[in-house]
Amino acid sequence: MSMAVVIHAAAVIERMLNLSSLPLILLALLSAVYVILSSSKKKADHLPPGPRQWPIIGNILHMGKLPHISMAHYAKAHGPLISLRLGSQLVIVGSSPEAAAEILRTQDRFLSARKIPSGMKYKHVDHDSMSLLWATKCGEGWKNLRTLCRNELFSGKAIEAQASLREKKVGEMVEYVRSRQGQVVSIGDSVFTTVFNTLTNVLFSKDFINGLEHKGSAAGGLQSLTSRLVELSAVPNVADFYPIFAGLDPQRLYARLTKTYEAACALWAPHIRERRETHVPAAGGDPQDFLDVFLENGFDDHQINWLLMKEKDMLFVPNPKP
């Protein structure tokens, strides 16, 4: 670079920093800020109203410790549809019966899809064909799965057929508590065992926990594993607010959830393998349990694992221990 060019550049900088030029620089900066804000406002004109958003974090701090209470306050101030931004993610909240009906019934075809949390994007899981709760679009796979669940798993006939099983398990628990008169009984553990065995009978036609005494590593391990899944699923994930960090897994939630998910699948893997080897398609009769339904519809082990996990979540959500 020649000396003349350097001197010329220095002169330009000197002129820019001259007080007489300062108003022009400020005017240019203000014009740029105005253009950016105007563009942002135009993009947000079609959104419902909502509380003022902070840069970068949006409305995260507005949620408070009781988000449902915060939403009720914002609904009074801004109306039944509220626009929020949690990190970089836009969220629209409906808080009136009319808004709920519009979202869940009138526009359900367009709004039934879900954004999959970063911690639940397990490998081998195609959510659009294997999940009712976390499908990203309501395609044919989702519709077929919904029809299967409605007709085979959660129909009135299926639920009625399970009534005797529920009565039997509750009766066993009542009899167990009665037989321990005068002794210390952990009602929480007994209820957990009863509910869990009821669920595994619906899924596999067998108890996973032997007896109601809740002793040994099997029962305690199952309860700990189930509680851990619930706890990890409820942790706010930075990667959900800022998807750019999803690959980094900054809180190790994906790694921990995947490990726990695989441990849960390992519990029933032998039962699936055994049933697959001995399964005979029902000739016009009703399937024996959920696993029979999955096998008769040609699901592979990955699909069955995920569906069993989701059926468990829908039918049984334990209270994590403090």
Rank of each mutant, 00 (worst) to 15 (best):
S131W: 00
H73F: 04
M130Q: 11
I92N: 02
I57H: 05
P117C: 00
H78T: 04
W142R: 03
G94V: 07
P67S: 03
H78E: 07
R109C: 03
C138I: 06
K123G: 13
H78I: 02
L86A: 12
V91Q: 00
L37K: 15
N59E: 11
H68K: 04
S95T: 07
L104F: 14
N151R: 06
W134V: 01
F110C: 13
N151M: 11
M63Q: 15
H73R: 15
P55Q: 14
G79L: 05
V125Q: 00
W142M: 05
S88N: 09
I69E: 12
T136I: 02
A44G: 02
P97Q: 05
K76Q: 14
P67Q: 06
I60S: 12
Y74T: 06
C149S: 08
L104N: 08
A77I: 06
E140M: 13
L37C: 13
S131Y: 05
A77C: 14
P49R: 15
K43N: 15
S70M: 07
T147M: 12
A100V: 09
M63A: 15
L148D: 08
I92A: 01
F110H: 15
P48Y: 10
L90C: 00
R109G: 08
P117S: 05
I92T: 06
L90G: 01
S112N: 11
A72T: 07
S95R: 08
H78S: 03
